[in-house]
Design a protein around this nucleic acid. Structure first.
Length: 797
DNA sequence: TTGTGGCGGGG
DNA sequence: GTGTACGCCACAA
């Protein structure tokens, strides 16, 4: 009988001395199943040795089953190897040590059994798979099929059934302590399903609230409801680090069995430093981990609280309630309904976030070919590595070993020379054109065949590249693994981008993004010390070629009569002066004609005006600090770190307005008089109070601060008023007039009045630092902005 | 400049 | 579990 299903999770058991893979998933008609498949553990041996010597190896009940002679490639060169099969997975590390003692090399002895299975069978989680086999009885919560044959079927993906979970705990002090404090409520949210289980009764009309007798009952009911809902994904926010470890400990204390696993196994917390909560057959997705690792780089926020992340990605926030007073509400049984609402809303947000990011998660699962549980918890280097390993196996390559401790230490001391930066002269410029190399590092790796196995080959030697650590070249006859794999990624992405022009499918967009991110991670991976495919010569060559090509573009621009203003890594800023945009495009064509393979210089844009500022007045470099104005009137601002959260609105407003006047109107005197007006208004307390409020988030508990800065002083005042203040609390304060230290002059925002704020403080510490460097470029000093001289002029520029 | 310790997220 | 763990920042030396 043939069954089509989407695998979601994988594990294995040893039955009658033989390992059996358990592949959990959901069938096309929506039923959960488990597929059982026999699979043999093995590893490779390379070296001169008698097969009989290996066959004889045994230790207790761990033994070699058989040995096969195979043809493989090692570091991209042909070799003969022995494939050593052992009886159970646990035997691999033991037997490989025995083999190693015989003086030969061993490989692929640390690839997890379940992952080995996925690679070898080419099974892609979340993707339609067909199993041929009969149903067999088994001790599981779901029907079991014993596989005769299992193959990937169609390029269709699962819409997983998801359940979000969140807990609230009794928390009288600022400390998380599951051994002392009980769980008060557990929230669940899924499709057409809302529930908050709690064990103190109060009157309510909300249907989602369910009362039970005790904390133990609450935990018990949680287990029942999860089983009833039968999710593919159980989702939480920081649930590896908080919710599940807490639930686990409370269940232990209350003697409740958390047999959530589809094989009746209990929730398991593994790992010392980075905890992971595992449930057999159900994928526990800690969406926080995925967001911080994969999505974070494309987000604006710099804090990853559920509130901030939901706000940005969903436009929805947490339910507002005094969380730190929950223990009191519980003791007095007053206002608990609000906390239930809060609990449920956290689940809703967690659910929606996962729903939104599902295309991204799914694409990483499909590219890297690992279960969602693993993908959510992996870093980029492991993504690249796992992808390479998959490709290596497909190409009959033996996967290199990870470095030993010593080797890794040696690698860590190796630093490579970075990218080329041509620093601009600070100043105001008109009519700039920006070019950049499209995917510079990936395209160099692809075009120059940069790979561990093609490094300094014996058969050819061009072109050579001189680097800091020697002369390197890459084979011109045989394509290397890195280069093949990265070319494939680039081509696949180009194909998807074509499709995206006529389609808005979020899966396609996510796939394109995933491919890009993966390709961009290759360069970093080559210099990643714990990597299996570590190749410092490859990384060094990549940056050396990058410098070569950017210099080439700079030279070509100069030769065509352009003034080169600025260049960093892969981009080039030139001034048009008396030339046209067409001249710039012609220059680009000329440069592109000589580029090898997949390399290409792109026209990034034309900017009517731009300003480059220096780090400090007098400093020559203006690296990565500029503001450009495009033809639509939008700003492109880089490196102005002055616009920060903990600045007052007036400081941000003034900086923005000054850039606008200078770039759009080219009117320095106007910008100057604007600032002077603000300075005067501040000194006369004419700027509204809410514009001078400073917002700062407390990074830790008040007691943790050794020296009391202004925001800490303000926090102390809040505490004195009886408000709960801790890490993460946003402190809003105003600096008022007076003598002494700043911290003695702070007032809470809602207690200060319009006429008492210290205008001079704002001028010196908020306004001036934000615009000082911009004016320095125009030859206008701080005194010109703040001193009370009515007359001072500067010609138009 | 390099090295180390703590913390993020959650309540 | 055929395992090994991050990455950034503040602060010190």
């Amino acid at each position: 009988m043939k069954t089509s299903f989407y695998p979601t999770d994988i594990s294995y058991v040893v039955k009658d001395g033989k390992p059996v893979i358990q592949l959990f998933g959901r069938t096309v008609d929506g039923k959960q199943i488990c597929v059982l498949d026999a699979f043999e553990p093995y590893f490779y041996v390379v070296g001169k040795i008698d097969v009989k010597d290996i066959e004889a190896l045994q230790q207790d009940d761990l033994m070699v089953v058989r040995v096969e002679k195979v043809k493989k490639n090692l570091n991209e060169h042909e070799t003969s190897a022995l494939k050593v099969f052992v009886n159970i997975p646990k035997a691999v590390p033991v037997i490989k040590d025995l083999v190693k003692q015989l003086g030969v090399d061993v490989y692929e002895y640390d690839i997890l059994f379940t992952r080995r299975y996925l690679i070898d069978k080419g099974i892609v989680p979340l993707t339609l798979t067909e199993v041929d086999g009969e149903e067999v009885p088994a001790q599981l919560k779901v029907p079991c099929i014993k596989a005769k044959k299992i193959v990937p079927k169609e390029d269709k993906v699962l819409q997983p059934k998801m359940l979000a979970v969140d807990i609230e705990t009794y928390n009288p002090v600022r400390e998380v302590n599951p051994s002392k404090h009980p769980i008060l409520m557990i929230g669940l949210y899924g499709k057409d399903f809302s529930r908050v289980i709690t064990w103190k009764k109060f009157p309510t009309k909300e249907k989602y609230v369910e009362f039970v007798q005790s904390e133990a009952d609450c935990l018990q009911r949680f287990v029942e409801l999860v089983a009833q809902y039968a999710p593919d994904f159980l989702v939480g926010y920081f649930s590896d680090g908080f919710d599940f470890p807490f639930i686990h400990e409370r269940a232990r204390i209350n003697k409740v069995k958390l047999d959530l696993g589809l094989d009746f196994s209990e929730l398991e917390i593994v790992g010392r430093t980075q905890k992971e909560a595992k449930i057999t057959g159900i994928s526990h997705i800690d969406i926080f981990k995925f967001i911080r690792k994969v999505i974070a780089r494309s987000m604006k926020t710099d804090v990853y609280t559920l509130d901030a992340v939901s706000g940005e990605l969903l436009g929805e926030k947490k339910h507002v309630v005094a969380k730190e007073l929950l223990f009191k509400a519980w003791d007095d049984n007053e206002g608990l309904e609000e906390y239930c609402k809060y609990n449920l809303q956290d689940c809703v947000l967690t659910y929606k976030l996962t729903e939104k990011l599902l295309p991204n998660l799914t694409e990483f699962v499909r590219i890297v070919c690992l279960p969602p549980f693993d993908i959510v918890r992996m870093t980029f280097s492991t993504f690249v590595e796992w992808y390479l390993m998959n490709q290596a196996v497909k190409r009959n390559e033996i996967v290199p070993n990870r470095p030993g401790r010593m080797e890794e230490m040696n690698r860590m001391s190796d630093r490579i020379k970075g990218a080329f930066v041509f620093e601009p002269k600070p100043g105001f410029y008109e009519n700039l054109v920006v070019f950049d190399y499209r995917s510079l590092y990936p395209s160099i790796i692809a075009s120059h065949n940069i790979s561990k196995g093609t490094l300094n080959c014996k058969c050819c030697g061009d072109p050579k590249m001189e680097t800091e650590r020697g002369t390197f070249w890459f084979c011109g006859k045989q394509k290397g693994l890195f280069s093949i794999v990265i070319s494939d990624l680039i081509l696949r992405r180009a194909e998807i981008k074509k499709q995206l022009k006529t389609s808005k499918d979020p899966l396609l967009a996510a796939r394109s993004e995933a491919l890009k991110v993966l390709a961009n991670s290759f360069y970093g991976y080559m210099g990643f010390p714990p990597g299996r495919y570590y190749c410092i010569e490859c990384a060094e060559s990549t940056t050396a070629w990058a410098r070569h090509y950017i210099h080439k573009a700079i030279d070509a621009a100069k030769q065509s009569g352009f003034t080169v203003l600025y260049s960093d890594t892969d981009s080039l800023f030139v001034l048009l002066e008396n030339k046209s945009k067409d001249d710039a495009l012609a220059l680009m064509e000329k440069i592109n004609k000589d580029l090898p393979g997949m390399m290409e210089l792109d026209y990034e844009g034309f900017y009517p005006a731009g300003i480059f500022v220096s780090l400090r007045a007098g400093d020559s470099g203006a690296k990565k600090k500029y503001a450009l104005l495009d033809e639509q009137g939008n700003f492109k601002i880089r490196g102005f770190e002055t616009v920060r959260r903990n600045w007052s609105f007036i400081a941000k407003d003034v900086q923005k307005k000054v850039l606008e006047i200078i770039l759009k109107e080219h009117d320095a005197p106007k910008a100057k008089s604007f600032v002077r007006q603000v300075v005067e208004d501040l000194r006369k307390n004419k700027i509204p109070l809410d514009k001078v409020v400073i917002h700062t988030a407390l990074s830790k508990a008040i007691a943790g601060y050794a020296n009391v800065g202004p925001h800490v002083a303000a926090a102390q005042k809040m505490e004195a008023k009886g408000l709960e203040v801790g890490a993460g609390t946003i402190i809003k304060y105003v600096v008022i007039r007076g003598k002494g230290l700043i911290r003695d002059k702070v007032k809470l925002a809602d207690e200060a009045s319009q006429d008492e704020y210290d205008g001079e403080y704002y001028v010196q510490n908020q306004i001036i630092p934000g615009v000082e460097r911009i004016f320095a470029v125009l030859g206008i000093g701080v005194d010109d902005l703040t001193k009370n001289t009515r007359q001072s002029s500067l010609g138009n520029f």
